[in-house]
Amino acid sequence: MRTYVLRRLLQVIPLLLGISFVTFVLLQLAPGDYINTVAENPMISAERLDAMRREFGLDRPWYVQYGLYLKNIFLHFDFGESFARHQKVFVILREGLLNTLLLALAAAVVTWGLAIPLGVWAAVRQYSWLDKGLTVFGVIGLSIPEVLSGLLLLMLAARTGWLPVGGMHSLDYDQMDWVGKGIDLARHLALPALVVGLTPLAGRMRQMRGNLLDVLRLDYVTTARAKGLSENVVVFKHALRNAINPLITLFGYTLGSLVSGALIVEIIFAWPGLGRITYDALNARDQYLVLGSVLMASFVLVLGNLVADLLLAIADPRIAYD
């Protein structure tokens, strides 16, 4: 098991190297650089722009820039500095990563907390009105774009005053006790988590339903029923455990995509996450910040897959890594 994890982690290095190379080349191919974005100041002179280009090393050929970037990573574990903020990339990304993980986690609670019970419910009552109703609800959730549902929910919050309009903390957050802080955070988290969590809900719910239906048709379930076990025990103890395997794999994938995929929600809900940092960096052609953030997101994605594989081994005794 330990060697397996180690091997998987070692595989990450060439992968990240490849990702960093592709990202760097793409950034070079895109027109313009960071200096362009500051050039629209009527007072700025050509000399100032040249001085900045030299300061940031942007006057050198791209392969030299990339070589230096790699050298600093391998020799000093230094992922470079943001042009706009004059700060280490790592420091900036750390700010956003925790917030994004929190949002991703809350969204996962919404998705899985609703998808598994509702999927099971729909499966055991197949083709009932409830099953059909849940399907309709799921499809609606899937088809409303996040921009729209986000803004509509924010409008509701603004008109009713039930929930705060975006942001992560109240202005008086620092003066609250820990209970107050917890409630405050939960109130700010509720709407963005709902929006992020609702989109994959339909898919996961249908998956759960389908898997469980497949399993419920198997012989051992019939046997269990014939033994006279109660329906609850049959469904939850015998069938569910077998039906849930593919969902565990999916869980790992969603963890990775949630980290990179919450950009729109982060912007609309003024959530201080990684997506916004990356987006701003991309717009400003702040290249080392973009690279750092892409590498970080890739790493989390790989990590998510690894976690899923390990969870699978725990859930299913037939699977073993060695």
Partner: peptide, 13 residues
């Protein structure tokens, strides 16, 4: 507040 519409709603609230 990165989004203009959100800022308007925040002002309204």
């Amino acid at each position: 507040v990165p989004n203009q519409d959100t800022a308007a709603l925040k002002f309204e609230a």
